[in-house]
Each structure stands twice: as C-alpha cells, then as structure tokens.
C-alpha cells in the first residue's frame, strides 16, 4: 500500500531525530560531498549505504547499467555540477555483477527504447566478442561484461571535457572503477583509478605483471587495462 510508505517515512524521520537530534539540521545546512557516485538504477544497490556514508556525503547519479554517455544531458549536468560547483574529489563508477541492463544488451531480444540506451554496451560486447566467447558460461560472461562496462565508463568520464578542464586547472580529482555484488554486499576495486598525475597507465597497485583482461587470441598483443589520462602519450 502506498500509504505504508508515508507511514514508514514518519517512523524513519522520528527515529533519525530521536537517535541524532541534529541529523536533519546538519543535512539541510550544507551539501559538500567529496564523492560523485555513478551507479546503476537497480534498487538493490543503495549507494550511500553500501559505502557507509550519510546522504549528504555522496552525490549520486544513477541510470540503467551505470553509463556515462557523453550525449546524455542528465549525466552531463550532474557531472558538471559535481566537478565545477561541488568540486568533488572522487568520481566513482560503480557497476554490479549480474546487471540486468548488461544482460539485456548481450541478449538478442528487442526491448524497445532501452535498446538505444544500452547500445554502447552492445558495441562494447561486439568489440570484445572474441574474448568474451572464450567464457563458455553465460552468467560468467555477463559478469565479465559488467566489469568491462565499468572500465569503459571510467574511460568515458576521463575523456569528458569537464573532467579534463578540471585537471587542466589543477583541480584534484580522481576517477575510480568499482564493482559491487548484490549477493554479498561487497565492492571490488577494478584498479583502473585515474588521477591527474601524468603517465600513460591508470594508477594501480604495484605488481610484477600487468593486468590483462581476458584471454588473448594467439598471435595478438595482450590487451592491458588502460584508461587514458589527459597527459597520456600512449600509442593508441
């Protein structure tokens, strides 16, 4: 019943106030989040809750399959506001395993308008078809694509003019790619973080071997996980 939601809201507000009488006053007086969260619309991923932050501490943008498309006015407005007005320090693209949007993009079924929205994922899947075909199990392939999609969206964010302008002005800003599992509530860092430090490769933990996404067909070059930075002089 819809009335239950309003009753729940009364209970929630009363409990919050009882536990912390200053909670709503504090929340209403300022919004200075350090983080912009770009996540999936999936209702099972409550952004601020999974990272243990209060609502005012995380600026949130959600859409189906956590995309960061350069033509989407909604996303661009959020990004510009977060970077230029709120001056967030971190942008987190967080996908989740088993994403229905990613699964839909990988399937052949026509769903309508959402097919247009998901077309970047379909293109990414086509691009990596050979690599994905090595993974026999469909659900595992979906999860691998969920990860690949996060990496692609991190690349989109770092290529965005608002982000590049911020870096050019010396603003401290890092972009991160994470993935969440609804089955255990845990986030995995996909190690594709990018800051404005110069260098061709994204910041990652020191390792003896480079990280390679998937199996590489014989005779071809391994594909390194790589997200370009404004200073990147990598040979593409």
């Amino acid at each position: 019943m819809i009335g239950d939601l309003l009753s729940n809201n009364l209970r929630w507000a009363a409990t919050k106030t009882r536990m912390d009488p200053e909670y709503f006053r504090r929340l209403s007086e300022q919004q200075t989040p350090e983080y912009l969260w770009i996540g999936c619309s999936d209702s099972r991923v409550p952004a601020n809750e999974v990272v243990g932050l209060d609502p005012g501490e995380l600026f949130v943008h959600r859409n189906v399959a956590n995309l960061a498309p350069s033509q989407d006015a909604n996303f661009l407005s959020v990004l510009q506001f977060a970077v230029e007005v709120l001056r967030v320090r971190h942008i987190i693209v967080c996908g989740h395993y088993g994403c229905g949007g990613v699964r839909a993009a990988m399937g052949g079924r026509r769903l309508g308008l959402i097919d247009h929205w998901l077309s970047p994922i379909r293109a990414l899947h086509d691009e990596r078809f050979e690599e994905m075909a090595q993974i026999a199990d469909f659900e595992t392939r979906v999860n691998a694509m969920c990860e690949a999609n996060v990496v692609a969206q991190v690349r989109n964010v770092t290529a965005n003019p608002f982000v590049r302008d911020a870096w050019a002005k010396g603003q401290k800003l890092e972009v991160h790619g994470w993935i969440y599992s609804i089955r255990d509530g845990l986030i995995r860092d996909l190690e594709v973080s990018v800051s404005r430090q110069p260098g061709p490769a994204p910041k990652r933990r020191p390792r003896s071997q480079p990280a390679i996404v998937g199996r590489v067909p014989p005779g071809s070059k391994p594909r390194l996980v790589h997200v370009c930075t404004p200073d990147c002089d990598h040979d593409h």
Binding site: Y97, E131, Q134, I135, A136, D137, T140, N143, A144, E147, I179, S181, R183, D184, L186, R188, L190, E191, R207, Q209, A211, I212, V213, G214, R215, V216, P222, V225
Partner: peptide, 23 residues
C-alpha cells in the same frame, strides 16, 4: 564466482587460458 575468478581473470597470463578454465 564473484571474487577469486574475476581477480584471476585480471592477473593471469594469456598462456594460462584462464577464461576457458573458469568458463
């Protein structure tokens, strides 16, 4: 499925054929 295998996919060498095994 959602921890060790994805981590191995990122860390293994091409010759490891990890995707086939994990698949």
């Amino acid at each position: 499925e959602e921890d060790l295998f994805p981590l191995l996919r990122r860390r293994c060498e091409p010759d490891d054929d990890i995707d086939q095994v994990i698949g």
